[in-house]
Structures are given as C-alpha cells and as structure tokens.
Amino acid sequence: MKTTVPIIVAFLAGVALVLAFFFDQRTLIGSLSQELRVWLSIVGGFTLLLGVVSITRVNYAAVKQRKEGWFFKLITLVSIFVMAVPALLPSSWSSLFGRQEGSIYDWLFLYMDAPMMATMFATLAFYIASAAYRAFRARSPESTLLLVTATVIMLWRVPMGEWFLDQLPGDIPFFLNTYIMNGINMAVQRGIIIGAALGAASMSLRIILGIERTYMGKG
C-alpha cells in the first residue's frame, strides 16, 4: 500500500501533465492539469514547513543534549522563530507584524539576513584569490590553455582590463565575445544542457512509470 498508492498518484499526475501539452486549456484535461499545478504549489508550501519542523527537531535535540556546537544550534533555533513568528502574525495587530515595510521581518531581513548572506558569498573572493595563487598552474598543455583563456576573459570582463586589451593590436574583445563566449563556450554549454535535459526526461519517465522509486526511500 505504501508503495502502490504513491506510484499510482505519480503515474496519474505525470500522465495528466504530459497529455495537457497536447490539449487546449479549456478541455477537461487542460483544467485538470491547472488544478494539479495549484496542488503542486500547495504541496511545495508544505515541504517548506517540513523543512522548518526538521531543522527544529534536529537542532532542539542537539541543544538539549549539549552536543558540540550546541550554542550555535541554539542561535539557529532562535533566529528561525524570531524571523518567522512576527512575519506570520497579521499586520492588522501591529505594524511590526507581517512582512511589510517597517515590520520586524523586514528589518531583520534588510539589516541582518541580506548583509550576512552577501558577506558569506563575498568571502569567496578571498578564497578564490588564494586558491588561484596556489593551485592555478600551467602544469600541462590543457591547464595552460585553461589558464590563458581564464586570464584574458577575466581581463575582458572589467573596464581596466578592457582598456589594456584595447591597447594591444587586433580587436581582442570582439574575438573573445565571438569565438570564446559565443563559439567554444556556447558549443560546450549546449552539449551540457542537452545532456542534462535528456537525463531529466528519462528520470521523469522512470518516475512516471514506477521504475524509479528512490523518492519513496526505496532502491
């Protein structure tokens, strides 16, 4: 029962959504597929809730047992609820509730969440610079080719580098855009995109036909 019902649901929903591509939206199958999409969005909302429940359970257990790093887990728990609870309360109760301008959520997002996330991402620049200095070596013809290409593309993508390239003979920026980005790069990216799309299509087909069952925790 635990396996059969999900397989039947996946098969019916999958087939309905595939068939809907070939039918007018005003037909029964068209409106059914639209209804399924609304359901899909609602189910997606519940997965977010599941994430909150899961992160709360895991961190609460770690705090309760005073495991290593429990203090950081406590901060995680406090952060989740301090951010989420005022956002979920109706703004008609207080202008601090809800998600509108001037609310607690808005303030925390603008002045804590966004700067912290941007800072975490920005630290990559330090690691990239350090890693490039230590590891980016012309050890082989392939790595030399990659190194030279990456260097000129990096130069081209900033105004100071562009100015430098413009001083050299020949239209190097034009060459880079036409032959590297719109030539070699594009050909490789197309191969990757087509490969990934074929993989996604075959995986979808396997799920619809009940061959792939790992999403139910089964091999």
């Binding site: 620049a125 990239i128 610079a129 490039a132 200095y133 230590r134 980016f136 070596r137 012309a138 190194l147 260097t151 990096m154 130069l155 993508r157 900033v158 105004p159 100071m160 580098g161």
Partner: peptide, 15 residues
Amino acid sequence: SLVHLLIIALVIVGN
C-alpha cells in the same frame, strides 16, 4: 577591476 587584476597578477607570480 582591481580584484580581477590582482588575481591575474597572483596567478602570474604563482606560475
């Protein structure tokens, strides 16, 4: 611009 140039300089010096 400066960071890109710095990384390029570091790559050259490193090599």
